[in-house]
Amino acid sequence: MSDRSPMVPLLREETDDLERSLLESARDDLSGDDAARARSLAAARGALQAGMLVGAATAGITGWRWVSALGLTTTKVVWIGCVTALVAAGSASLMLTRDARPLSRAPVSTPHTARVPVATATATAERAPVPVSRAPSVAPPLAESPPRPVPRTAGEPTSNTPPSTSAKAVAPVAPPSPGTLHAETQLLQSVTISLASDPGTALSNLDAYDAQFPAGALAEDAGLLRVQALLAAGRRDEATRAAATFERRFPASAFVSRIRSLLANNP
């Protein structure tokens, strides 16, 4: 085989029957039946939620001092996170139970609840405690399937108009109601989902976000997502300008270093 000839998967070439049978049998490699898959997915999310709570310290939360005064240990934080994850999981089919075993597999040696790698999460947590009372008891529920992306509306701008330009013209608004925050969350989730595959649609949705929520609670998130979308669309100069605008608007934001890192990694 020439080094320069493009390589094509064997299943797309002429191959003998035995090889083809073996390779095609791998198409059965699914994560069990629906119930087993749901349990495995819930276990992964549960462990992740615990890890996210502990790792929230790396997201730049600085208001932890009052929490440490409560004397919460790292271990307690992780277990609170596990409980929170269980509550957030919602339906019974997603709850981690001691009897949760995949129907189509051999019995596992330990229950799913014991599989949460607390030690791993604990090791991450050694840096700082976490503001538990602001932890994701108010986070959006872990959806089983992503929300439908908001379609692009004809006539809406797709340019990278810096957020501050439109924000300056709007009067200050009261703190967002839970309903408003939910709407903001839904819109930005649709941006996140389309970010990699369709940055154009992501940017349109970000324009919609800026128009609907000029002083939104998640404005910083939207600013970060805008930089990411512009980079994904190959519009680096605009991403650089959006980053500069973000830093002027949110100089103390935890996203500043992350945005700088994104630009540095995308020359």
């Binding site: 996210m52 929230a56 997201a59 959006p140 872990l142 989730q189 935890a254 996203f255």
Partner: peptide, 18 residues
């Protein structure tokens, strides 16, 4: 600061969930 950090956490939570 806490609000900014909470928002950062929220964005990360959304992305990892996706």
């Amino acid at each position: 600061s806490l609000s900014s950090g909470q928002l950062a956490f929220h964005a990360r939570d959304t992305r990892i969930n996706t």
